[in-house]
Amino acid sequence: MRISKEEVAKIAHLARLEIGEADLGRFAGQLTDILDYMDILNEVDTSQTEPLYSPVEHETPYREDEARSECSKEEVMRNAPRSDGEYFLVPKVV
């Protein structure tokens, strides 16, 4: 299989995802199918082609350096799962 269960677990780990042991096999199979499909791109000669990362054609839009306060601290913290009104609270990293 092109992408093994271990590799799936490792990549998932990078993305802070835990795929359950039961699902890992099936996941690896599905990912393999999809990646195999993507091999089709190797048929295309891109040696002379610049990558196109975005369709945008306009020049850099800049912002003037002015400080503006458009929202309150309460608004920004309103949806926090845990806060004391001052800080966002999270469990410590061990």
Binding site: I3, A12, A15, R16, L17, E18, F27, L35, P91, K92
Partner: peptide, 27 residues
């Protein structure tokens, strides 16, 4: 613990298709 919190939050908060695409994208 923070790292465990990340794993649990994201693994439970996202559905399967989203997780699949995140893993592929990360790959």
């Amino acid at each position: 613990e923070l790292t465990r919190m990340y794993f649990a939050t994201r693994s439970k908060g996202f559905g399967r298709e989203v997780q699949r695409r995140i893993v592929l994208g990360t790959y």
